[in-house]
Amino acid sequence: MTSPDQPAQPAPADSSLANRYGAKKRRLSPKGARAVIAVALAVGIGFLAWVTTSNSLSGVTYKDVGYSTTDATLAEVDFQVTREPANPVKCAVKALDSKFAVVGWKVVDIPPTAGNGTPDGGRTVAQRVTLRTESASVSGVVDSCWIPGAES
């Protein structure tokens, strides 16, 4: 004779899932979560400070002020350079035609200055450069500035 089927006792869900997938992961305590957030925030602020100051520590910035074309063979470019007064600087200045082709190019030497009697201590100097051009120019700009011997 057969006996009626007895329902099997199912294993508790937690233990069967734990056997299959591993034990439940422990959550980070609130104190630990705050510590992780504080460290991430400090690292982020430090990175932003480094990015902000690393550009200003490069030593040279420039700003185009204006240009004028006197005739088809000459152009004048006005610009300002900011750097430490004791540093000499070289700037590449170019004149462009209506198709943005370079029609004049010159590297200008800017010597160190004493820096006395100016509001910013001689850090900013204004320059006017005359460029000879191959054809009529419609624009004049500074391409780049650098401290001689500091190029990498």
Score class of each variant (00 low, 15 high):
T130E: 09
T133I: 04
V129F: 00
A49S: 12
R83W: 00
W146F: 08
A33D: 08
A114D: 14
Q80N: 15
S68C: 08
K25Q: 08
D64F: 08
T52Y: 15
I37Y: 15
S56M: 10
D5N: 11
V39S: 04
I110K: 08
L28H: 13
T82C: 02
G66A: 14
V129G: 02
Q127H: 03
K94G: 02
L131E: 01
I37K: 13
Q127I: 09
Y21G: 02
T73D: 04
K106M: 05
V108Q: 07
L28M: 15
V102W: 09
V39R: 14
P119M: 03
L74Q: 08
A126H: 05
R20E: 11
S152Q: 14
G140C: 01
T130K: 02
V107S: 06
E151P: 00
G115D: 01
T70H: 11
F47M: 05
V125M: 07
V107A: 07
V39M: 08
K94C: 04
V81Q: 04
L57C: 03
D5S: 15
N87K: 11
I45Q: 06
T124K: 05
R20Q: 13
G149P: 00
N19D: 12
T53D: 06
N116G: 11
A86R: 13
T52E: 10
P10K: 07
P119C: 03
G122H: 00
P85L: 12
P30A: 13
A35R: 13
T113C: 05
G22K: 07
